[in-house]
């Protein structure tokens, strides 16, 4: 996927089960083709900041959405969020946090760090659509012409 041009969604998820369910949900919305999946926070930062394995990427072509898991190996979700929201080149990219529960502490902290929306796992179509709608990206993302 790295070579297939513009990535629309970056999915940061370490849990295989969750990843598969999320991808299925996105596939149902015809979005699966433009998805980049990374498995931990360190890899996510390489993608977001166009370095390491993703050195070929350009800041001018940011993803339209990042789906970021809260609990990640190496670098946690909140740390990734903090770094990208603190950088002028990346802070405008919308981020939806994927969490296991609506633990108040996580919610408050994530909103403080500038998260755009929140989706409680498992990511089914409805909750995903609601989050995207909240971001005003509904038509942009969901009304993709299906790839044939």
């Amino acid at each position: 996927m790295k070579e297939s041009g513009e990535v629309e969604i970056l999915l940061v998820e370490d849990n295989m089960d969750d990843m598969e369910m999320t991808l299925r949900s996105l596939r149902k919305a015809n979005l699966a083709n433009r998805i980049q999946v990374v498995r931990d926070g360190a890899e996510a930062l390489e993608f977001i900041f166009c370095r390491g394995a993703f050195a070929g990427r350009k800041f001018e072509n940011p993803p339209k959405l990042i789906l970021l898991d809260l609990n990640l190996p190496k670098v946690g979700g909140k740390e990734v969020l903090k770094l990208m929201k603190g950088d002028a080149r990346t802070k405008t990219i919308p981020v939806v946090m994927l969490t296991s529960s609506k633990e108040e502490k996580d919610l408050v902290e994530s909103y403080d760090l500038g998260v755009n929306s929140y989706v409680v796992k498992p990511v089914n179509f409805e909750s995903f659509a609601a989050a995207v709608q909240e971001l005003g990206m509904y038509w942009l993302l969901l009304n993709q012409p299906s790839k044939s």
């Binding site: 849990n15 089960d17 969750d18 369910m21 809260l70 609990n71 969490t99 296991s100 529960s101 633990e103 796992k121 498992p122």
Partner: peptide, 10 residues
């Protein structure tokens, strides 16, 4: 809250 839920989600 988080870890017990992951397998349950599956």
């Amino acid at each position: 809250s988080h870890d017990l839920r992951a397998p349950l989600r599956a």
